[in-house]
Simulated scan of single mutants.
Amino acid sequence: MGKGGNVVPELPEWADPRLVVRLRGEGSELFVVDGNPHTFKGLVGLYSLTDREYRSLSVRPHEIVADSEYIQGWLSGYLAGSEPDVPQVLCRTRRDRELGFFHRNQRPLPVDRAGARVVRMLRTSISTLDAEYSRLASLVNGLSEVSGFWGDVGWIAVEPWNDPVRLGRTGNEIEQLFGWLNGGFELAEDRPWDPTFRLACEGSDWAPQGTVEIGGTLGWSSSVFINVEESAYRAVGLENNPAALVQAVVASYEPDLFSVSPCEDGEHPTLVSVRYDGDLFSIPMGQVTYLSERVGGDQGARLDPALFGCRPFEEGVLIEFTGSPDAFTPAVAEAAARALSSEE
């Protein structure tokens, strides 16, 4: 007999009878655990014992009705063996956050919102790669004017290289960095794939190693993220001069979407999603959020004026949470993100 008194059909030869389970929301249907589906970290493969035809699916462990100690132990061990590989160049608090998130949510923490604080910026379209290399160089120069950290610190390419690199100050230097990080492939103007970069700071008087990470992607659109640990807030300008940081990013990078958000648990805050030219673009809702005019900068009028201030800024609108940091709760962030997001 199976779980709940069901008769267990004949098992495939490879199946372990101790791993016959039910799935939440699937009633009395029986499955047998089929191991690692080799799709995404944390997923478990199940094989249906009810259907006459082969049916398999991948689920998170919490979706499985684990009503025996053996199954509970198997799932715990499976998750432990599936932990994401956190690059060693990142700091201990960051590694602890990623592993904690994985065990709570049974999926990896998105790398572009993995810091205690995240600076995120996105451009919905770009003209040429050369122009974007120059724009990224302009961003680095703008950040250097906010804090000497950006001019003084050395950088390490995140695994698998772990090699020292230079975050250039000119378009040509940024182009060389992208070429090296992406295997030396020539980055064609038609952009058939999306070249990426991901760097962690070396230890310095400004910040311990791995407490600041900068990365991003170029393609038909462009995005940059900066993950910052609490011990490095001063280094990047978040502690003493956040207004200057916002000004530098918006003026140099000219994003369509930009935010500075607390992301201590990886899920807070909710994403703001806007449509442009038929595509959907998302960014974390921040205590500071910027929307350019072309992606709906007028949507700030939908926010609760008791919680958020909105003012024209550059080519869009700057939205600032006016309460204390502790009052920026998931519920507040979710309501604001809903108000700013494009309607379906």
Rank of each mutant, 00 (worst) to 15 (best):
G4Y: 11
V8K: 11
L11R: 02
V20E: 00
V33Y: 05
N36W: 11
K41R: 15
G42E: 09
L43E: 07
L43K: 01
T50E: 05
D51Q: 05
I64C: 00
I64N: 00
I64F: 04
Q72C: 02
L75I: 01
G81D: 05
E83S: 00
P87V: 03
V89Y: 10
T93F: 13
R94K: 09
R95P: 04
D96M: 00
R97E: 09
N105Q: 13
N105D: 11
N105A: 15
V111G: 05
D112R: 02
A114P: 02
A114D: 01
R120P: 09
T124D: 07
T128A: 07
L136H: 08
L139W: 04
G142R: 01
G142P: 03
G148Q: 13
G154C: 06
G154T: 09
W161K: 10
D163Y: 15
E173R: 00
L181G: 11
N182L: 03
F185H: 14
F185Y: 14
E189P: 00
R191P: 03
S204M: 08
A207K: 01
Q209H: 12
E213S: 03
G216D: 03
S222R: 10
S231T: 14
S231K: 12
L238A: 07
N241W: 04
A244E: 12
Q247G: 02
V249L: 03
F258V: 06
V260Q: 07
P262L: 12
T270D: 15
V272D: 13
S282I: 12
P284V: 00
G286N: 07
V295N: 01
D298Y: 14
P305Q: 10
F308W: 11
F308I: 03
C310E: 14
E314I: 10
L318A: 01
I319C: 13
E320C: 00
A331K: 06
V332L: 06
A335Y: 15
A339W: 14
E343C: 00
E344T: 10
